[in-house]
């Protein structure tokens, strides 16, 4: 599967959220989308997932425009994990995860597997409204896992913002696992260390434009990121000899 983003511009009235964005990605990779607040990360991800139509340009998956796909086709190829999952009915966590199979047909085993992967199987009959932010984020991940077709695309908007260290680590492993099964995995992240840990490539946005795009190790350096975020960064080396970007 190949994702191609061609000259995407998104305007909301006078506000330009994205300006002339070009990029591409192949299956089997985890791509982190980074950037300061209001740099256009969520808008880019929503455009990639076909949830909104760009003012100009196009996003194609294997040559098909994602915003022109039928709801069924889109649901079978693209799974979405929001930053904050919202449900307005009196549903259990299991029911919310089952909704991931709405268009592509029920599958008890896929739902159970997904709940097990995010460690919510024993809480699956709890009501959604009683769930913590972290549980909701894991449930949204489980819904995407239950929905995804291996070899498709998984789009995640800050999927780890409410997770503890244990679940952050297992989230990273799940994303890498999906990529190893041929998925294109694209996630907006604020945690640079986490991005360096899981991402094969990064796209860095600033004020709606791509300012860095390439292999993670080549792109993420103190000098390149420091200017974008407006902070002084340094390398720090941990006990295992791994390098981390830290604020100087």
């Amino acid at each position: 599967m190949r994702l191609k983003i061609s000259d995407v511009t998104m305007r909301y009235g006078k506000l330009t959220a994205l300006q002339g964005v070009h990029s591409s990605a192949d299956g089997g990779k985890v791509i982190a989308v980074l950037g300061p607040n209001a740099s256009g990360k969520t808008t880019l991800l929503r455009t990639i997932a076909g949830l909104t139509t760009p003012s100009k340009g196009r996003v194609e998956l294997d040559g098909v425009r994602v915003d022109k796909m039928t709801p069924h086709d889109r649901a079978s190829k693209i799974s979405w994990v929001p930053r904050i999952a919202e449900v307005s009915g009196a549903f259990t966590i299991r029911t919310v995860v089952e909704l991931g199979r709405y268009a592509i047909g029920p599958s008890e085993s896929r739902v159970t597997d997904a709940l097990r992967q995010v460690e919510l199987l024993d809480r699956s009959e709890s009501l959604w409204h009683g769930a913590s932010a972290g549980m909701r984020q894991r449930a949204a991940m489980a819904r995407a896992l239950a929905q995804r077709t291996p070899g498709g695309m998984l789009v995640l908007d800050e999927p780890s913002s409410a997770l503890d260290m244990h679940h952050l680590k297992s989230m990273g492993e799940m994303l890498k696992q999906c990529a190893s099964e041929g998925d294109i995995v694209i996630a907006a992240l604020h945690d640079i260390s986490f991005a360096m840990e899981i991402a094969d490539a990064v796209i860095v946005l600033k004020e709606g434009r791509i300012v860095l795009d390439g292999q993670t190790n080549a792109v993420l350096t103190p000098s390149s990121l420091g200017g974008i975020y407006g902070v002084d960064l340094n390398w720090a080396v941990d006990e295992a000899g791994k390098r981390h970007l830290v604020i100087a």
Partner: peptide
């Protein structure tokens, strides 16, 4: 079933195929 899925946020409902 469509009403169930429409209880998700707009983006989530659209992403599951509603």
């Amino acid at each position: 079933p469509t009403l169930d899925a429409a209880c998700l946020s707009d983006d989530e409902a659209t992403s599951v195929g509603v």
